[in-house]
């Protein structure tokens, strides 16, 4: 028996894209770059005041930058989803939020370890620390709402992402009004030449890593959507046949 044209089955995707060799090469490249960054960090001269512990900085700052990037990508995807009904925007937002949780965790662990050595305490209620903690909490809430809120929590999560993105500058300024002991962003321009190249290399490799992880995570989301779609079509085809 032939299948009626209305139910002609779509072509089967061979496998989720990430297992392709091109993808594996990108993944390997990102980790190689990260490894090189580690070597460069090891080579970089010791900072005269803080010594070895200053080296946390080379990984801490890129992670913080990725936390910000993830939040803004998440908010952008949420806007596309809320106002244009873009499913793709929604998937991008979810993937970015997960990466934000991952890199936010790295920031929040590496920061206090440095602070213990430099300030003598693990935690200070200070502008940057507080705003990154809150940003991270909001992203965790986003992922929780997506995972446990059922299908209708998607709009809710998207609204949360938008509020999170506007909240960050607000928290930052509100806490900054008391005190700020966190090193300013201007320290980057005062780094010695050996330190500077290590810093930029690690920033670059973390950014590449972010894009690779993002496409990996996005491919999972896309494959999932495709599978659900195929299942519906197959169910219809089987019903028709029996």
């Amino acid at each position: 028996m032939t299948i009626p044209p209305a139910l002609s089955l779509p072509t089967m995707p061979t496998a989720p894209a990430p297992t392709s060799t091109r993808f594996l090469a990108a993944c390997g490249g990102a980790f190689l770059l990260l490894f090189l960054a580690c070597l460069a960090v090891a080579e970089a001269p010791l900072e005269s005041v803080m010594g070895l512990v200053q080296k946390i900085f080379y990984f801490h700052v890129p992670c913080a930058w990725l936390l910000m990037l993830s939040t803004f990508v998440c908010a952008g995807g949420s806007i596309a989803y809320l106002f244009r009904g873009s499913e793709r925007g929604d998937r991008i937002a979810l993937s970015a939020a997960e990466l934000g949780v991952l890199f936010g965790m790295c920031v929040l662990v590496s920061g206090p370890l440095w602070a213990k050595a430099a300030w003598g305490v693990y935690w200070q209620w200070e502008a940057r620390l507080t705003s990154s903690l809150l940003l991270w909490l909001m992203l965790v809430a986003y992922v929780l709402a997506r995972r446990y809120g059922g299908p209708s929590a998607r709009q809710l999560a998207a609204a949360l992402a938008l509020f999170a993105a506007v909240d960050i500058p607000l928290v930052y300024f509100s806490v900054r009004f008391f005190r700020s002991i966190h090193p300013q962003t201007t320290v980057v321009s005062t780094l010695g030449p050996g330190m500077r190249s290590a810093f930029w290399l690690s920033l670059l490799s973390f950014t590449v890593l972010w894009f690779v992880l993002m496409s990996l995570r996005l491919a999972v989301e896309n494959a999932q959507a495709r599978i659900v779609e195929l299942e519906v079509l197959l169910d219809q085809a089987e019903e028709k046949k029996s």
Partner: peptide, 19 residues
């Protein structure tokens, strides 16, 4: 210093765990 090792170790572990 243990702090540096801890920080780097954690970041590597987290990224690999996620992958």
């Amino acid at each position: 210093m243990t702090m540096v090792a801890l920080a780097y170790g954690f970041i590597w572990l987290a990224v690999f765990g996620y992958v």
